[in-house]
Design a protein around this nucleic acid. Structure first.
Lengths: 187, 187
DNA sequence: CTAAGCGATGACACAGTGTGTCATCGCCTC
DNA sequence: GAGGCGATGACACACTGTGTCATCGCTTAG
């Protein structure tokens, strides 16, 4: 028997998601989350630097895996191909936890403060992908534009996928990218 | 003689920008900003709903003007053309206050919390433009992708323009969009 | 001219977030 | 079994953001 129940971070995440979904984000306090997990608020802030982050801890992992996939692509691959590899990883990771991802997405979509953090995380992802592309020899501005296009396509696809349980996430991303070409090219 | 100095909001904005630039965003308190403007912190929150917003009050105006420009475009214009009109307005507005815009941009770039808000404002802008496009008959997903592409091109261009005093902001935006087509098309 | 109303501000109290610091207590190692 | 280590609790505190009432000058009706 250990002195404390195991996986304090996981318990806090789960408690937060439940409370945010039922009571709303603003209305639930860190103290309530901690209490439901059998902890104090001081301990909450030892596991997560701030309140919103309790829902975003996993997105750093996603970023790392996408960047790793991009780096692993053959050097002669075009930016588009390399980004496709990164998108494959993201789609796979989200599909694994489809249910959790959808619950989380609904909570985030309903709260401005959480939406703000989510947008920021996507922006960070975009920057990370751009940097990785740049290291492969792509110019700074092309890298930034390509990465933002990929993240935008992913974001729009994810949004739709979260509403339509049956949708094929990977296909949606691809469709969005094809769409983009026509839209921007046709003056 | 009025009882109070005029333009409390403007004084707060200026005081905040100065303090953020010299002392840093986190390190300066709302009380300090208010004191420098000859006010109390309670009054600060009557002019701005929260601390970061003191730097973003103007971006709602920008959004409204861009949307208005998009709506004013001829109905037969392509999404790209309509968005170009909106981008023209943004470029004009920023060029007018180039100096203020650059000071503000440097402060924001140096502070994660402000960066988060800035990213969110751009996301909102993107949503607003997408909605306006959709009302013109463009499908929901194409509208979202086109708007995000435009905002991305603008963001990347602005970032470079803030560093290079001589740059032509409008041309940078256009270059980014052209870049985008090639990057996404070439599998 | 005067009094009532209005609008911006100050003053004060308070809930909630986030941090610093020290104490506690079980587990692990020597 | 003694001491170190790591996770947690307890407590104090600074800062953000809000509710509420008082204040004071300006405006307007009468």
């Amino acid at each position: 028997m250990s002195r404390w129940e195991p996986d304090a971070g996981g318990r806090l995440r789960e408690a937060a998601l439940e409370l945010f979904a039922t009571t709303g984000y603003e209305a639930t306090t860190v103290a309530q989350i901690a209490a439901r997990a059998g902890l104090t608020s001081r301990t909450f802030f030892r596991h997560f630097p701030d309140k919103p982050e309790v829902l975003f801890a996993g997105s750093d992992t996603l970023e790392q895996k996408m960047v790793a996939a991009l780096r692993a692509a053959p050097l002669e691959a075009s930016p588009r191909r390399a980004l496709d590899d990164a998108l494959d990883v993201a789609v796979a990771l989200l599909s694994e936890r489809a249910d959790f991802a959808r619950r989380r997405h609904h909570v985030i979509a309903a709260n401005p403060a959480l939406l703000e953090r989510e947008t920021m995380k996507l922006a960070r992802l975009s920057t990370a992908l751009a940097t990785a592309l740049h290291e492969r020899g792509v110019g700074q501005r092309p890298a930034a534009m390509a990465a933002q296009a990929a993240v935008a396509a992913f974001g729009v696809a994810f949004d739709q996928w979260a509403r339509e349980p049956g949708a094929n996430l990977r296909r949606l991303v691809e469709e969005n990218l094809d769409l983009l070409v026509g839209l921007v090219r046709d003056k």
